[in-house]
């Protein structure tokens, strides 16, 4: 293994060893070797040719499909700002539901999320305004995380709906007790417990929006 191979292996060490990465590594190695040969043919010594070749390689992360460079702090601020917005909307929606016990719990939960995201956003806004370093985002990974979040959200909504319907109506099936819907407040309370889990749709929507934010950042780097 020569210097160049060792160098390229080191640059690719942090990535998963799959076929795609292996092929890319080989391609980079061949290109660098060709560049070194080219420079040396023009009379440059090996070390100078090597330095020029590796300098031309740039950020290896960006060679991998699905990786995208973003301005680190601009992206962080944007993501934090979206988090504030996407916790603020369900917080406002659940305020009128504070007449019901489940509504109070949900609204208090969203208040907590809002306070945390708000503090993070303000801190990022004040501390990182001048720093303009970049970072690479694995868009493919982010897309997979979003899919997982959607699946988890779907499971949560199905389970909570089944639980709510079960607690309200299953006693009629299993214990032969009549369904108690004694007035408009009780009916509204039932509707609120069914509808409330759907408000959490803003969590997967946030991940979708962050994906778009990465795309929007493309031109700013």
């Amino acid at each position: 293994m020569n210097d160049l191979e060792r160098y390229v292996n080191r640059r690719f060490a942090k990535f998963k060893h799959n076929k795609e990465i292996q092929e890319l590594r080989d391609e980079v190695l061949v290109n660098l070797q060709a560049r070194i040969d080219d420079e040396m043919a023009q009379g440059k010594p090996y070390q100078a040719a090597f330095d020029l070749a590796v300098e031309s390689l740039g950020n290896v992360d960006l060679l991998i499909e699905g990786h995208q460079e973003v301005a680190r702090n601009r992206f962080r601020r944007g993501a934090a700002q979206l988090a504030v917005l996407y916790s603020l909307i369900p917080w406002v929606i659940t305020i009128p539901l504070r007449f019901f016990h489940s509504g109070v719990l949900a609204n208090t939960g969203w208040t907590l999320v809002l306070v945390i995201t708000g503090v993070v956003y303000l801190v990022l806004l004040w501390l990182t305004r001048s720093d303009e370093t970049t970072r690479v985002i694995n868009v493919r990974k982010l897309r997979n995380v979003t899919k997982v979040v959607w699946v988890l959200w779907g499971i949560y909504v199905i389970l909570s709906t089944c639980f709510t319907l079960g607690t309200w109506f299953a006693s009629d099936i299993w214990f032969h007790r009549s369904i108690q819907m004694t007035g408009p407040y009780v009916f509204a309370s039932f509707v609120v417990s069914v509808v409330l889990p759907f408000v959490s749709v803003f969590i997967p929507l946030y991940f979708v929006r962050v994906q778009r934010l990465v795309q929007e950042q493309e031109g700013f780097v």
């Binding site: 700002q81 504030v84 917005l85 603020l88 909307i89 917080w91 406002v92 305020i95 009128p96 504070r98």
Partner: peptide, 13 residues
């Protein structure tokens, strides 16, 4: 938008 929503939320609360 955040500020407007926050004002609406606090008033509604």
């Amino acid at each position: 938008v955040i500020i407007v929503l926050l004002i609406i939320g606090v008033a509604a609360l």
